[in-house]
Simulated scan of single mutants.
Amino acid sequence: MPYTIEEIAKALGARAEGKTDLTITSAAEPAQAGPDQLALAMKPAFAAGLSQGKARAAMLWADAVWTDYEIEAAILVPRPRVAMAGLSAIFDPGQGYGTGIHPTAIVDPGARLGTNVSVGPMAYVAADAVIGDNSVIGPQAYIGTAARIGAGALLHSGVRIMARVRIGDRFIAHPGCVVGSDGHSFVTAEESAVEQARASLGESVTAEGQSWIRLHSLGAVVIGDDVELGANTTIDSGTVRPTQIGNGCKIDNLCHVAHNVRIGNDCLFAAQCGIAGSTVIGNNVTLGGQVGVTDNTSIGDNVVAGGASKVFSKVPAGRVIMGSPAVKMDTHLDGYKAIRRLPRLFEQVAALQKAVFKSGENE
């Protein structure tokens, strides 16, 4: 759908200048932008590409002198990334999911659907499930028995919401996401090698091999409002109490949250993070890609963990950490610098040894 420069600027809360009635159909990088596209040049380095494209309008940084470029209109934004969020929402064409309940979908008579709910091809909604108003259930999605999903949800194709899971409003789940799978909980009839290793910190393991006995997951999962889960991310049910994810959390693709974990509000996890069972994570915690967190520990509010960090112990609030094991980022960087200096140090020691031995021979 086309929009004028003025309409886009108003939607973004930004300032429009020049020919604000120009019609824009989409956004593009400056060098590839066509006459009907908005060139995204929100840094001076990006604006250099405007001369290579054919854009008549551009989105620029707040104090840019737009008349310095061969364009007819400009949108000036103080926070480029925030403006990009709004712009991407305006021009997102969506996945083309249909409206209403598709003839191949199965909705149990005992399920309750709010107004304007769409259920895609070959999707299944089980008995006693409740889906809020204006929600979209994509093709081949599954909603389990007595699950509760709030208003404005978007479940992409192949999402699985298992029995008794409770989810707030405006939930987004990307393809292949599974919420409410059983936790990885097993025990042996007698003390196991794992228990001995934990108790002795690896000094002795004498237990013989045994079969594993399964602990069923009774707690399900509780998720707050405005949560987004990436493709193929999995959230395990709690053993007795629910696994919990707070409001506003954004969890990337291929992440795993194990049973009994509690996550606060507005956390951001990048791809391939793994949170082991019964760990407690505070509010506004950011985990880089491939961060691993051990079981039964805690991470305080506002912690930032660099990519591939491995957290084996409690982390106090406000700390920036990195490494394996994770330590304060400045400590990790100092250690890394020291490791890089080792070859030079070895050379210096070798030269010193040679000089000392040669001096001894001369005596």
Score class of each variant (00 low, 15 high):
Val349Lys: 11
Met122Ala: 13
Leu342Thr: 05
Ala111Ile: 08
Glu70Asp: 15
Cys255Met: 05
Gly219His: 01
Gly300Ser: 06
Gln210Lys: 13
Gly152Pro: 11
Gly49Asp: 13
Glu7Val: 07
Ile321Asn: 06
Ile251Tyr: 00
Lys43Arg: 15
Cys177Gly: 05
Leu38Arg: 11
Gly219Trp: 02
Asn362Arg: 14
Ala173Trp: 06
Gly94His: 09
Gly138Ser: 10
Val222Cys: 08
Gly282Thr: 02
Asp252Ser: 01
Asn247Leu: 04
Gly183Val: 06
Thr279His: 01
Asn265Gln: 13
Val291Gly: 08
Gly94Gln: 04
Pro2Thr: 14
Val125Thr: 06
Gly86Arg: 07
Thr4Phe: 04
Gly274Pro: 05
Met162Val: 05
Ala55Ser: 13
Ile149Leu: 12
Asn116Val: 07
Asp334Lys: 15
His332Ile: 11
Ser157Glu: 11
Ser51Tyr: 03
Gly168Val: 09
Pro316Val: 13
Glu70Leu: 12
Gly248Gln: 03
Ser237Ala: 15
Ala153Ile: 10
Glu363Met: 00
Lys19Ser: 12
Ser157Asp: 08
Asp182Thr: 02
Ile75Met: 09
Val349Met: 13
Val107Leu: 10
Val125Arg: 08
Asn232Gly: 08
Ile101Phe: 03
Glu203Thr: 14
Ala146Gln: 12
Val293Arg: 02
Pro175Ser: 11
Ile263Asn: 02
Phe346Thr: 11
Ala123Gln: 06
Lys310Met: 15
Ile223Ser: 08
Lys314Ser: 14
Thr286Asn: 11
Gly176Cys: 05
Glu228Tyr: 06
Gly323Cys: 08
Pro44Asp: 08
Arg319Ser: 14
Phe46Asn: 12
Ala193Gly: 15
Phe46Trp: 14
Glu29Tyr: 08
Ala11Thr: 13
Gly183Phe: 07
Phe357Asp: 15
Ser192Glu: 01
Ala231Gln: 04
Asp108Glu: 13
Leu333Tyr: 10
Thr297Leu: 14
Leu345Trp: 10
Ala64Val: 10
Ala153His: 04
Gly318Phe: 11
Val349Gly: 05
Glu361Ser: 13
Pro316Trp: 05
Gly158His: 07
Ala62Gln: 15
Ile8Gly: 07
Thr294Arg: 10
His156Val: 07
Ala193Val: 01
Gly306Gln: 11
Asp330Ile: 11
Thr115Val: 09
Ser237Gly: 11
Pro343Glu: 06
Ile131Thr: 05
Val187Gln: 14
His332Lys: 12
Gly219Ser: 03
Glu347Phe: 00
Val349Pro: 00
Arg15Met: 10
Val303Gly: 05
Ser51Glu: 15
Gln272Leu: 10
Val119Ser: 05
Ile235Pro: 02
Gly138Phe: 03
Ile213Pro: 04
Val291Ala: 08
Leu154His: 10
Ala173Tyr: 07
Leu38Tyr: 09
Ile299Ser: 03
His259Val: 02
Arg319Leu: 12
Thr99His: 12
Thr99Asn: 12
Arg262Trp: 02
Met122Gly: 02
Gly300Leu: 09
Pro78Asn: 13
Ile339Arg: 14
Ile167Thr: 07
Asp295Met: 03
Lys10Pro: 03
Ile213Trp: 07
Glu361Thr: 13
Asp21Tyr: 09
Ala64Trp: 12
Ser181Cys: 15
Pro242Asn: 03
Asp252Glu: 01
Asn296Ala: 14
Val327Glu: 07
Thr25Gln: 09
Thr239Ile: 13
